[in-house]
Nucleic acid binder design. Structure first.
Lengths: 342, 342
DNA sequence: CTGAAAGCGCTTACAG
DNA sequence: CTGAAAGCGCTTACAG
């Protein structure tokens, strides 16, 4: 079997405790001994046993990643791989490993999180979503377990949680104003899942912009669907059945926009000539559609990076209370929007 | 702190060893005691400590996932999230967790793998790629550590390794024959990274088909690039500079095809009128391009699922030797191919 | 069917 | 600057 600390100790003629101190590079060990011990480690190809270390240490050097309905569905939306890229980058730099949730239902995921927490499997958790009535976050708060949230806490005192978010209200407002500036008044809103806080914030921004612009809000212009291609398609079916069709659309997610574009194409509605579209996220493939998408870049990679950064700070300093980072967004103008004529 | 096995034991009036046996549902414990112990566990909200269990047990119930250059780059190609979906699904069913590699260079990744293996962090490893001169696989073989490979071992006795693959030679051949049937003779081959075995196999299939069809092989029709959008774009620049331009293209990866299509569009070359294209993978977004892609569905999800299945079998039965699963592929005809006129 | 004891491979006060 | 010893929370022969 693999060499243990005892083997190294024997070979270097020191006590196991000394070897342990060399591993953690304790300043209380002389350079000479360190040398000798390191030599012995090299020779034996020694690698510390993580489980033993974690057990004695109460620290795992791994971060748990929790997805909304976990890999099975989430990974269909490029948002998730991209956040994980950000997370992965920072985690590697800081010497942390990544542990992925795999459950699919809310209950399964909650159970997994409990295992991570009580089982001492991870030092902290990154929640990749923020949904109302979520049970995971309250659990984490109750346990006072380090976590960071991508999104915004809802119905929870904000100062209790560490989170990284965009200003989604503002983004929703900006996007609406942009369409209004282009002369649009009948603006459809294709929101994501209503359980997600981001959806709520987008909608608020949309309404605020309408109010400011003295454009009456119409319930029928609002539809909500899953952030999937099919969601976008379904949304179009609904919106295009209205007598007074919208001349512009706000879409919650680029991947939905693919569905929107395809459906519109089938119906022979031209984008942007007949209808303008602006969406959110700016995932890589948003510049691959035709026409290419005008969309809000929310800097997904940075969301992941920052969330990891905040979490690691929290782990290092558990009593530090909540903290909050707002990642800036930016409207990327491409080909799906056009000034309304007449 | 969290309740331990001792707390449960005390509460249930049994010895810790008995509690342990209840956890593993040993048949040697009476139903009555089990009841009592379970009751106590519920009351205390007991969850076993994973590290302690792993240490005593030498089993972690977690699987390591190793990506070629890890999350940072890999996740730009939808292939990887999709394999992980497959892996995740099976892993969850079997009660395994997932641990992700995060390193970026070959050396970093090898070091991570060593940590996983020697550190007892995972029970087995899934390699998501197969490249020549790879150091990870030989290491795993040398250590006799359970792993499964997505792809095909290269320069290694096949019976030593457990792998899941497509018949990429055949796929490459089929695709070429398909283009030939459509009347094409000048067929360009845009391969992926030459270090990957899949690239080699595709190319072999391509050559074989040409030979069978008595079409001379031309070196200048072969280019190789990274499996990224940019790779596809670069490839087109090269191929379109040839005097005798190809009338059809085989592209290693759908995501490259996006780059190819875009570049062709910029050059005002019509697909499929001027040039036909067939590619590989059938990632979700391959039906989102315009024109939509004719591509080989390699059943990515199943690759992940099967690899996980094989790995778990290997873990349960370490002496079982290598095994091999070939996942069938299927040409999906969409809009990028056309019969050559004249 | 159940318990006492040793052990998994580390870390960390406590001594010196 | 270094060592002996206890402990982290489990599991698993060994007894009975």
């Amino acid at each position: 079997m693999a060499a243990t600390i005892k083997d190294v100790a024997k070979r270097a003629n020191v006590a196991p405790s000394t070897v342990s101190r060399v591993i953690s590079n304790s300043s209380r060990i002389s350079e000479r001994t360190k040398e000798r011990v390191r030599e012995a480690m090299k020779e034996l190809g020694y690698h510390p046993n993580f489980n033993a270390r974690s057990l004695a240490n109460r620290t795992t050097k791994t971060l748990g990643i929790v997805m909304p309905n976990s890999a099975k569905i989430s990974f269909q939306n490029p948002f998730f791989p991209e956040v994980i890229r950000g997370i992965s980058t920072k985690a590697y730099q800081e010497g942390y490993g990544l542990y992925l949730s795999t459950g699919q239902t809310e209950d399964e995921i909650l159970e997994e999180v409990k295992q991570m927490v009580f089982g001492g499997r991870v030092d902290g958790i990154i929640l990749l979503y923020s949904r109302i009535n979520d049970k995971v976050m309250p659990f984490l708060i109750e346990q006072d377990f380090p976590f960071s949230l991508i999104g915004r806490p809802y119905n929870i005192e904000e100062d209790k949680v560490t989170y990284v978010n965009n200003d989604n209200f503002k983004a929703g407002k900006t996007v609406t104003e942009y369409l209004m500036l282009l002369g649009h008044e009948r603006i459809g809103f294709i929101g994501g899942n209503l359980d997600y806080v981001v959806t709520i914030d987008h909608l608020k921004g949309y309404k605020q912009a309408l109010t400011n612009g003295k454009i009456p809000f119409k319930e029928e212009y609002i539809v909500n669907h899953e952030e999937l291609i099919e969601g976008g398609q379904d949304a179009i079916v609904e919106l295009m059945s209205i007598k007074e069709r919208p001349t512009a659309l706000i879409v919650a997610d680029d991947i939905m926009t693919f569905g929107v574009l395809r459906m519109l194409n089938d119906m022979d509605v031209k984008v942007p000539d007949d209808i303008s579209i602006v969406s959110f996220n700016n995932v890589m493939i948003s510049e691959l559609s035709s026409p290419t998408m005008t969309t809000v870049d929310i800097h997904i990679f940075d969301l992941g990076l920052e969330a990891t950064n905040c979490l690691i700070n929290k782990i290092k300093n558990p009593d530090s209370g909540g903290s909050k980072v707002i990642v800036p967004h930016k409207l990327v103008k491409r080909e799906t929007c056009k000034k309304r004529e007449g």
